[in-house]
């Protein structure tokens, strides 16, 4: 009889919405502050006023038409789970297993956001599942856009 498979440690895990996450602090920048330091109520993405495309990560120019007429614009906050992993190695001492993830946005599926999947049981996670944004406090006033399943 062979030993238990590596992934058996994930059985029964649940990832709640944490009160906060001890994140790195992004350096302040006029290009990116709107993304990290909003009021935590709505997801805003850098959007081109000329062609309408979302550029991510945000910067001073549209990545599609090179217009510099770009500004943050509220999006639906809904998307699709592109990829995920459950971290069990204690890279940060004291941190319980959690679920780093990548999500594509409903508005534009070539835009991927690295995030965490929360409010979910390990055994219900599936690539392709619909998800919606929920904000969690990071370090130094940062609001982290995390995602949870749409129910």
């Amino acid at each position: 009889m062979s030993a238990a498979r590596s992934e058996s440690v994930l059985e029964g895990l649940r990832f709640a919405i944490p009160d906060s996450f001890p994140s790195f602090t992004p350096i302040q920048s006029p290009d990116t502050d709107f993304y990290w330091r909003g009021d935590g109520t709505a997801l805003r993405m850098l959007t081109c006023n000329a062609c309408g495309k979302i550029t991510h990560p945000p910067g001073p120019v549209c990545g599609y038409c090179y217009s510099r007429d770009v500004a943050p614009k509220q999006v639906s906050g809904r998307g699709t789970l592109y990829a995920w992993t459950v971290n069990v190695q204690p890279f940060v001492p004291g941190l319980d297993p959690y679920c780093p993830a990548m999500v594509t946005l409903d508005e534009q599926d070539d835009v991927k956001i690295t995030t965490q999947l929360v409010d979910v049981n390990n055994d219900e996670i599936e690539v392709g599942m619909p998800v919606e944004v929920v904000f969690v406090n990071g370090s130094d006033g940062v609001k982290l856009p995390f995602f949870r399943p749409v129910r």
Partner: peptide, 28 residues
Amino acid sequence: PTVGSQMQWTLVPGALAAPHWFAMMTNR
């Protein structure tokens, strides 16, 4: 504790190290 440039987009939300980035790539 602070991070700028490209790395902020993975590090800040908690994808803290190369194993996370490649784990998600492998999962996908």
